[in-house]
Amino acid sequence: MKPLLFALRREPEQRLDLSKLTPDRLVGRTVKEIEAIEIGTTKVEARVGEIFKVRSGDPANLHFEGGSERFDLLGAKLLPGFSIYVEGDVGAQLGRNALGGRITVAGDAGPYAASGMSGGHIDIDGDCGDFLGAPLPGEIAGMAGGRIVVRGGVGQRAGDRLRRGIILIEGDAGPDLGSRAIAGTIIALGAVEGRVGYLNKRASLILAQAVDFGPTYVDCGAHNFAFARLFSRALVEDSRRAARLLSQKLRRYAGDTAVYGKGEILTPA
């Protein structure tokens, strides 16, 4: 069965709240009912029908033809077994609090992608904004599970307060990658800058390019890690380069010893 299609008519005039368009909320609805859903975020009304041309199909698989950086909260609270594909850019909070499923974005994503996500798989072809997987202001923990793969670069503080799950960045990472990370795994294949792993409690940061990590990261020598080989196997379908990085001998910098100190930065030996 063909996926349920949302073809963008024109660039929306306001930011959209697309959390209402997750597959589980669309099951059993007719095209007419879907077109009547209000997705605006201002006083001006914005219904699905005005912005998208909807073509009926399997609501378990959504397809957005055309994207916009005004597409906020796309795939929020997504459940296992569903998938969303976006041919274009998306806005802030992509996959916010997602519990499972799969989101593929053939474009760029805004800030706070995968924020609060606890399961599922997000794949972003382009770049990603700041605070990838980070908590919103006031929240204690960030992403708590699942996997996010960014083919391009990311903004600052990706993986902030990461609690669980894997963040894989094939491009360059902005300042303060993995700041305040609680646990989980961040893999960055491009350049990193700023205070990498600042106040990292027990997360693993695996970086293809080493920089000066500051005095609170302590060199623990180069080793073969069985867990890295395990991750290498698990990630080979997402990124061959990441799998290759993980199968190498890695130098372990333990830290951030300014806090708990059970985390680590691993770089090729």
Binding site: G145, R164, G165, I166, A183, G184, T185, R202, S204, F225, A226, F227, L230, F231, A234, K262
Partner: peptide, 14 residues
């Protein structure tokens, strides 16, 4: 000094 790692719903101890 042990660290837990989660991968695809399974948990491992280092």
């Amino acid at each position: 000094f042990q660290i837990a790692k989660s991968l695809d719903g399974r948990r491992y101890w280092r």
